[in-house]
Simulated assay, not measured.
Amino acid sequence: MSLENPLVVEYKVVNGSRINTDVYLPQTELSSPQKFPVLINIHGGAFMLGHSRMVSMPQVEDCLKRGWIVLVTNHRLCPGVNLLEGPMEDIRDLLAWIYDGHLDAFLAENGNYRADLDNVAAFGTSAGGHLALSLGFDVPRFPKAILNLYGAVHFAHPFWKERIPKIASILPPNLEESFINKVYDEIPVPTDSSISLEGQSETGQSKGPDFSRPRDAFAFTQISSGNVIAKIYPDGEAGGADPEYKLVDPVKNISENFPPTYIVHGLADGMVTIETSRELYRILQEKEIPCGMTEVPGEDHSFALKMQVGSQTWELQRLGFDFLEKYIGRGPL
């Protein structure tokens, strides 16, 4: 196993969608079974784009050096499923899969690594930050701590209905609705869009969105028009079954039992306003949840995929992983 070739295991099959997670193991010699803390790492992509190979590999490597088993997971992509019944359900099922012993059974087939089920944490960027936070409510057993990098929260904030001109500027003219709506014809619902929100491909090269593909055209159209939440979770719109987003919005679900949580957000973020993270942080403090927040100077959205190891941004975002380490410790390296 290497950073280029992780182990891969399927944790769920639903309506023809086969959902897997990449498994990265700390490199150490083991003569007998040893338990390691586990970190769930969830990619971003506005809930509509992305794949497990589209995360910051330096972050994964940093976590491995802390002695953690890292699961970089996939989930079904909206809009063929909605936010609650697709991505959130899948990530919650992964957490249950781990706690039910299935990860250990897989690891036992691949050597002496074992999961320390008392020390499981969750981390995600952008949409993945939201999904990591969704493990802090409405699940039978929480992770021990959560790290959220510029996650999508506080859906009642007016920002979520605002146009984003820099995204609108790259859309080709005359995209027909009948074409972009072909995304709904993708059956089974995909878990891989091949290109991320930033245009990063599975090889790590930045290629930009491909507007000859309905999914890319659909996703960027909704992002540019401030229509993402309405498309991925129509029950949150006026007259819907969940008009206040109580089932999906972390800021509506911070209880006194919510896991310790750390937030990292760029001060120049134009894709998810930092005000939404500040509201989450305020509520965490109000509920007296152990928490912290780092605001990163000069950084726009998705900076984790671009930052240089050793830079100021790198060191600032590492504070979030240091926070997790306080709760789940280090593995036996």
Rank of each mutant, 00 (worst) to 15 (best):
G16N: 00
D22G: 04
L25Q: 04
P26I: 08
L39E: 11
I40F: 11
N41E: 13
G45P: 09
L49G: 08
V55C: 12
S56P: 14
M57R: 15
P58T: 12
D62S: 15
D62G: 12
D62R: 15
R66A: 04
W68S: 06
I69K: 06
I69E: 04
N74D: 15
N82A: 04
L84T: 01
I91N: 03
I91R: 01
L94D: 02
I98Q: 02
H102D: 10
D104P: 03
F106C: 00
F123K: 07
G124L: 05
D138S: 14
V139D: 07
R141I: 14
A145C: 07
H154G: 01
H157Q: 10
A168P: 02
L171E: 09
P172I: 04
N174P: 00
N174M: 02
L175H: 08
S178I: 05
V183Q: 08
V183N: 06
P190N: 09
T191C: 13
D192L: 06
S193Y: 13
S193P: 11
S194W: 13
S194I: 12
G199D: 14
S201R: 15
E202P: 08
Q205G: 11
F211C: 09
A219E: 11
A219W: 11
T221W: 12
I223F: 14
I229G: 01
I229M: 14
K231S: 15
G236W: 01
G236Q: 02
A238M: 10
A241S: 15
P243V: 09
K246W: 04
P250K: 03
I254F: 00
G266L: 01
T276P: 00
P290D: 12
P290F: 03
G292C: 02
M293F: 04
V296I: 14
V296H: 00
G298M: 05
A304P: 12
M307A: 09
Q312R: 11
Q317C: 09
F321R: 06
E325D: 11
L333Q: 12
